[in-house]
Every structure is written in C-alpha cells, then in structure tokens.
C-alpha cells in the first residue's frame, strides 16, 4: 500500500478543509455573515471535520462501535449547527 489509512484520511481532511474554507468565503461574500452566524457555521464545519476524522480513525483501529458513536456524538451536532447557521445566513437575504 502506498499510503496508510491515516495518511489518506488526513490528506482527504486537508482537501475538505480547503473546500470548506472556499465555501465559507463564498458564503461570507454573498451574505455578509455576522459574527454569530459565522461562528455557528464555523463550529458546525469544525465538528463535521472532527466527526469524519474520529469515525474513520475508529474504523482504522478496528473499533466500529466507537466510529458509530462518533457519528452520533459529533456528526449530529455538526449537521444541526451547519443547518442552523446556513438558514440564519440565507434568511437575511
């Protein structure tokens, strides 16, 4: 194998971070986010990344239950925060 699972995970996370940053900048340009909305979207995006990192790492270490729980504990709040943040951002327009 050329890359280990962890190396591939962090490469993909880097790529995703870049996409999220671009998306955040676009959202800010289009909707002029205030600090509250920006924080909610930012926190949601961070939790989403953390959820992916945690769950994939748990699968790699052979602990599938920890991966599922990671999705519930970190993934659910991430989705809620991102949905809420995006709704608040788009509502202004």
């Amino acid at each position: 194998m050329i890359f280990s699972g962890s190396e591939l995970l962090f490469f993909i996370l880097g790529f995703l971070s870049c996409l999220i940053m671009i998306g955040f900048i676009r959202l800010n340009k289009e909707n002029r986010l205030n600090w509250k909305t920006g924080s909610i979207v930012g926190l949601g995006a961070f939790l989403l990344m953390f959820c992916i990192a945690w769950s994939v790492s748990s699968v790699l270490e052979g602990e599938p239950r920890a991966a599922s729980m990671g999705m519930v504990v970190f993934g659910m709040p991430a989705l809620i925060l991102m949905t809420l943040g995006l709704r608040l951002a788009l509502k202004k327009n």
Partner: peptide, 12 residues
C-alpha cells in the same frame, strides 16, 4: 460578489 475569481484563488 458571488464568484470566487482567479485573483481570490491566487490570494488564498
């Protein structure tokens, strides 16, 4: 306003 131009990409 809506598009991230080449210049922005270059900046980032």
């Amino acid at each position: 306003k809506t598009n991230l131009g080449r210049r922005d990409f270059l900046k980032i």
